[in-house]
């Protein structure tokens, strides 16, 4: 771990903030604490990627409300809730809204560490996924119009011959377009092509 990972801790209790900061810093994280949800939102714009530790019950905006507000602003930091009185309904709501974990106070340092690691893994995976989509879109953009058409039909399951008949060209021509398209998309098999193609289209739709 060469670069220090960021942990953003939002809790209105100074002792909790300090104790967790001490621990997490000792584990090699860079910790920033915020005494309220409002304070976090005020400084949210300039923050790097990291994991959020969010107290559910705070004066002012609650943890769940902050989660909703962040989603509205398309700030997709992984969130771990830490709460003094979690009930099932609340935790289900938080997890459904994308929270990584829901820790009940008091929790052990190990539990917290495990959750944070999971959150970073999640964040990494998410980042990888996003990068892949970006890559695919870049590759897709490099296809010619004819190649895109061929790709569309290939993915839809048409055989080369059918495709040739439909487009009114020779089998050989289709073969060339197809292999060039697959190379450009970085796909080494038909299933891989389908996955990558779908990834692009989905992200387009979204």
């Amino acid at each position: 771990m060469t670069i220090k990972r960021h942990v953003f801790l939002v809790d209105d209790d100074l002792a909790v903030c300090h104790a967790l900061s001490v621990f997490l810093e000792s584990c090699g994280y860079f910790v920033r604490t915020f005494p309220s949800a409002e304070a976090f939102l005020a400084g949210a714009a300039g923050l790097k990627d990291g994991v959020m530790l969010l107290d559910q019950r705070m004066t002012g905006m609650s943890g769940l409300e902050l989660q909703t507000e962040l989603a509205r602003r398309h700030i997709n930091q992984p969130i771990i809730f830490i709460t003094g009185h979690g009930d099932v309904r609340m935790s289900v709501r938080a997890l459904k809204a994308g929270a990584i974990d829901f820790l009940e106070k008091p929790f052990s340092n190990n539990d917290l560490l495990a959750s944070i690691r999971e959150a970073f893994l999640h964040a990494d995976e998410h980042k990888k996924h996003r990068d892949e989509i970006a890559e695919m879109r870049r590759r897709y953009a490099s296809l010619t119009v004819r190649e895109r058409e061929v790709m569309r039909h290939v993915v839809a399951g048409l055989s080369n011959r059918h495709l040739a008949e439909q487009l009114g060209v020779s089998d050989r021509t289709i073969e060339v377009h197809r292999s060039r398209g697959m190379k450009k998309m970085g796909a080494d098999s038909l299933p891989d092509l389908v996955r990558k193609y779908t990834l692009c289209r989905e992200s387009d739709l979204n």
Partner: peptide, 19 residues
Amino acid sequence: HELNQPLTALVSYCGTALK
């Protein structure tokens, strides 16, 4: 809630100290 906050801090301090 009120008691949990200092307890959380306490647990964490102890854990860090142990570490």
